[in-house]
């Protein structure tokens, strides 16, 4: 048994090392760049920084108004992700379980998928119009609304496929026990969707945190700007402060990476179908 495992294990290790190099090398460049002065970057991107200079971090955080932007980012991201997970898991569940009898529900799947093909550029002017008429520009609440709505389709689409892998027997058993639809979903189905929920949450925390194209048009005042938008202050029309930009973006990604590490434990080994049956 042990001998058998060896060859594939070696091959997979070789691939893994190659993949890790591919992924880590540019991250490494980003990290060392964040410690360099403009002149050091000009001389060589590859060389190690001469000293562990934290100026870029200090200046970058100051220039991006770090605490306020961080608060704005968090205020937008986390409630939106909560709403996305809540409503798209419900929607995904409904589509997965009911599309066999309802044409309308079946077409929702296609509608959501279709909406993912619409380029944002053609939505820009109307979205701006809606926000202007509702007085929602420069409003974090408005941004939550927008981002939630913009992400629902993708998240729901993701849930649909995965709900199908939840054995139906459990629900049937619960139904017999007199469980209502709401109870059924939140008490029984939702906990079984943990792996995909963790995935949806991790992805959307990352996406919303890093959103630029929507934020830049709807949040135009400094007071409501997010970390991601603020990072573009390091890029002028003719100048770019890459050291600071990398420093600020490395600091900005810490919360996202932390969330990812935390959520990982929910992407646990699959539910055992046998265990469910009993």
């Amino acid at each position: 048994m042990k001998k058998k495992l060896k060859a594939p294990y070696v091959i997979s290790t070789v691939f893994l090392v190659l993949a890790l190099i591919f992924f880590i090398a540019p991250i490494f460049l980003a990290v060392i760049t964040s410690f360099k002065s403009p002149m050091e970057i000009a001389e060589s991107i590859l060389a190690l920084p001469k000293s562990l200079n934290l100026d870029n971090y200090a200046d970058g955080m100051k220039k991006s108004d770090f605490l306020r932007s961080l608060r704005n980012s968090a205020t937008i991201t986390f409630p939106s992700v909560f709403l996305i997970v809540l409503f798209s898991s419900m929607g995904g569940y409904s589509i997965a379980r009911n599309s066999h009898w309802s044409k309308l529900i079946r077409s929702m799947d296609s509608l959501y998928l279709a909406s993912l093909m619409i380029p944002f550029q053609i939505l820009m002017i109307p979205v701006y119009k809606i926000f202007k008429n509702l007085g929602l520009q420069n409003n974090l609440m408005g941004m939550i609304l927008m981002l939630t709505g913009y992400s629902i389709a993708y998240a729901t689409y993701l849930y649909v496929g995965f709900v199908k892998s939840v054995p139906r027997e459990i629900e049937e058993a619960a139904l017999i026990d007199g469980c209502g639809p709401l109870q059924m979903f939140f008490r029984i189905v939702f906990p079984l969707l943990k792996p995909i929920t963790a995935t949806v949450a991790a992805l959307h925390v990352m996406w919303l945190w890093n959103d630029f194209q929507i934020s830049i048009i709807l949040l135009q005042r400094d007071k409501v700007r997010t970390l991601t938008v603020k990072q573009f202050y390091f890029f002028g029309q003719y100048t770019a402060e890459y050291g600071m930009a990398f420093a600020a973006s490395i600091v900005a990604m810490i919360p996202v990476v932390l969330v990812f590490i935390l959520l990982q434990k929910y992407i646990v080994a699959g539910i055992s179908a046998g265990a469910v049956k009993t």
């Binding site: 569940y93 409904s94 309802s102 809606i130 609304l145 709505g149 913009y150």
Partner: peptide
């Protein structure tokens, strides 16, 4: 009731979706 529930489960997400994508799309 189950059928109604199926639609109601879809509704909140769909309304958000309308606000951000569907309505702007048809407006443009």
């Amino acid at each position: 009731a189950t059928k109604l529930a199926a639609y109601l489960f879809l509704l909140p997400g769909f309304l958000f979706f309308c606000f951000s994508i569907l309505i702007p799309f048809f407006m443009g």
